[in-house]
Amino acid sequence: MIWHQFLSLAGSYPLALRGLGMTVVLSLISLVLGTLLGFGLGILRTGGNRLISIIIGAWVDLIRGTPFLVQIFLIFFILPEFGIELDAFTAGIRSVPTGQVEAALASGLSRWQRMRQVVLPQAMRIVLPPLVGQYVLLIKDSSVVSAIGLTDLTRVGWLVVQRVPNGLLVFFLVGVGYFIVCYPLIMLARRLERRIGAAHGEVQL
């Protein structure tokens, strides 16, 4: 019985691969866009203009205060993510001690040079581990796009289970699919955290 279902499942592997591909592509797009936007707006938010900082802060609160599934229906997929990553970047930039900025200021570095040479390299050390952890969440959360009809890995699960009525087996395999994508990132986050724990002045990006 199980064996029979398993064979039938094996037959639907092209569909599963397509779903996995969709999950990875969607995650990648929102990861890259979310990071870039979060990075840019994080810099803007700490830039000293009060109005801009308030508007961006309100955006972050809005994103945090509404369910992901609701946001998906409203604005698809990309916009919510950078709200979260934006906060990580803001926190990272603010964690760099004032003395660092003053030292850079005193030696005549321009605003951009201060960011590029002094603030960001130090902020990245703080931001990177939680950011990679955030990427893992993002990949898992991408499953909600199945609700708007995109054929990602989770939706493939729903489609297949209609043919092979063994939900436990089907979604176990769906879980394995997500794990294969996420596990390398989990390992990366752990390595980055360990490196920052080792009190060394060096950072390699």
């Binding site: 001690p97 003395g99 660092q100 003053e102 030292a103 850079a104 005193a106 030696s107 040479q117 002094v118 390299p121 130090q122 050390r125 002045g201 060096e202 950072v203």
Partner: peptide, 11 residues
């Protein structure tokens, strides 16, 4: 400008 707390760039 030399600071009390040095403020060298740690990276």
């Amino acid at each position: 400008f030399v600071f009390q707390s040095f403020n060298l760039y740690p990276h």
